[in-house]
Amino acid sequence: QVASGNGDRDPLPPGWEIKIDPQTGWPFFVDHNSRTTTWNDPRVPSEGP
């Protein structure tokens, strides 16, 4: 069983990049398509309500 969020081996969607926040050391994700950033890994399906 693979733990949720453990998709580091999967490629990011086109136009996405991983960067590290220098203050926290946490990775965040840059979507160059929409010029936005998020803490949520785009490779992990979001949980519904």
Rank of each mutant, 00 (worst) to 15 (best):
H32P: 01
S34G: 05
N6P: 12
D8R: 10
D41R: 04
D8W: 07
K19G: 05
W16Q: 03
P27A: 14
P11I: 15
S34A: 12
D21S: 02
D10Y: 05
W39C: 03
P27Q: 13
G15V: 00
Q23H: 02
S4I: 12
P27I: 14
G25H: 14
L12R: 12
T24P: 02
P14C: 05
S34W: 00
E47W: 06
S34I: 05
P27N: 14
N6K: 15
Q1P: 10
T36H: 04
I18P: 02
K19T: 09
P13Q: 01
P42H: 04
V2W: 04
P14R: 11
G48R: 09
R43H: 03
I18K: 13
G15E: 06
P14F: 06
G25A: 13
N40K: 09
G15M: 03
H32V: 02
F29Y: 08
G25C: 12
L12H: 01
V30T: 00
R35D: 04
P11K: 14
F28E: 07
F29K: 00
Q1H: 08
F28Q: 14
S34V: 02
D31A: 01
P42D: 04
N33C: 02
I20D: 06
P27V: 14
I18V: 12
E17H: 01
G48P: 11
F28N: 02
L12C: 13
F28S: 08
P11D: 10
T24F: 00
D21F: 00
E47V: 02
T24M: 11
D8T: 11
Q1R: 14
N33V: 06
G5L: 15
F28R: 10
P22I: 06
S34T: 13
F28G: 05
P22L: 06
G25R: 14
E17I: 00
P27L: 12
W16K: 13
T37Y: 10
P42C: 10
R35W: 01
F29N: 06
I20P: 03
P22W: 07
N33W: 06
H32Q: 00
L12T: 12
G15D: 04
R35S: 07
S4G: 03
R43W: 00
